[in-house]
Design a protein around this nucleic acid. Sequence first.
RNA 1: GUCCCCAUCGUCUAGUGGCCUAGGACAUCGCCCUUUCACGGCGGUAACAUGAGUUCGAACCUCAUUGGGGACGCCA
Length: 471
Amino acid sequence: MEVRTRFAPSPTGYLHVGGARTALYSWLYAHHHHGKFVLRIEDTDRERSTQPAIDAIIESMKWTGLTWDEGPFYQTKRFDRYNQVIDELLEKGLAYKCYCNKERLDKVREEQLANNEKPRYDGHCREDHSEHTPDEPYCIRFKNPREGKVKFHDLIRGDIEFDNAELDDLVIRRTDGTPTYNFCVVIDDWDMKITHVIRGEDHINNTPRQINIYKALGAPVPEFAHVSMILGDDGAKLSKRHGAVSVMQYRDDGFMPEALINYLVRLGWGHGDQEIFSLEEMINLFALENVSKSASAFSSDKLKWMNQHYIKTLPPERVAEELVWQMEHLGINYSQGPSLTEIVKAQAERCKTLKEMAENSVYFYQDYTEYEPKAAKKWFKENSAEALERSLAKLEAVSDWKAENIEEAFKTVATDMNVGLGKVGMPLRLAVTGRGVSPEMGITMELVGREKTFERIRRTIAYLRSGATQN
RNA sequence: GUCCCCAUCGUCUAGUGGCCUAGGACAUCGCCCUUUCACGGCGGUAACAUGAGUUCGAACCUCAUUGGGGACGCCA
């Protein structure tokens, strides 16, 4: 039988990393078994579902590469189907009309709480409707079995069982006629032939109710796997307070989707000592039995490490593609100057994010307006102007403007002046980039360009000769 | 409160009864490399929640305790 999994977010907000991980696991499981991955939008809550949220979820799925084989399906387009099944259940006596109003429900709940009982519907309307007239407003409740147990084998957690006595008769159709979540998922997973339901652990408690509905319908019960939660760095539930939670925020913060996916797959799953997985490896090696049962804390530090790993090892052309967004966001016109691929090669080992890379590469495209104060104070000394003058002379003699030749040329200056390389290299760095940090000076000057380099050095010599520094 | 789930270094994890004086990775600390910042290399600190069992032997099995988390909606 073909393995079919699904990701079924409710469009009430952006896609967060927890959802993304669940989607990833579903996606991997389907691909591992050469099955299908379905995207379904659970928008039965018309109050809170929004189109921007749907767009954001789809954009996130596409950015991370979690593409779906079928869908997106929308539950709001399937209301006829749900209602038809509900009517059938009603006819068969497997569901019933409930006329209880909010006041009565609240009162029951209060009493149960006072008696230290789990609050649930007491089944008041389950049998007797004599006191009601057909024109009174009502909702439909599913007749949950009152005795026995519901057992299922969770593919991650093992056997789980609930007493039916713990469950109540849940509402499957609201008074306004719309069907509810716990009912719609069952019908959808059934209709869409979902074989493996992989979702968050907050759904464990819904599972026995849903299994009872499957059984009432005579539908095959799928396999279930409940993935644990993702916590923040501090062990508390992940929230905006911890920084980024939305997938697109990671794009904005300068992360490669490859890194996010790799980080997410490792958060809660492992394969021996391996940390880095290509997509192919993930598909081949992923198994639900190796998914961790306990909640895991999201470590931005490790994500950053992994991001840099991908920045360093992915083809620079690929990294440059993502860098485009950052450059445009900063308003840098990168069409004049070195190619972004060259920037990636030069900067990769000193950037954890593409955002950093863009911010630290501005001087390749624009003239700086001031020297970084701390670096200038530290490195502009009395002989700096001389070092720059001598360097300029050597550099002007370089005919083939390549990093290697440039490097060779200015290094002789240190020897000539009988000083350490730092005394020459750092003033040069300040002169060419305005900053105390940059790639090696050879490649930096090559990328800035011959004429620009000379211009900036001359300007700096003038600045130093004017007595601007008191060192 | 009731039900359900969970429990190895600060963090993510390896470990499925002897290979464990518990391995790897991130973070952290120290050293080396070095024109800056980094990268890299080498080394260090650091964990089986507690208590009973089962067993010749337990991080691994069982139970209890404690501690976390989730659910208890005419939300999903």
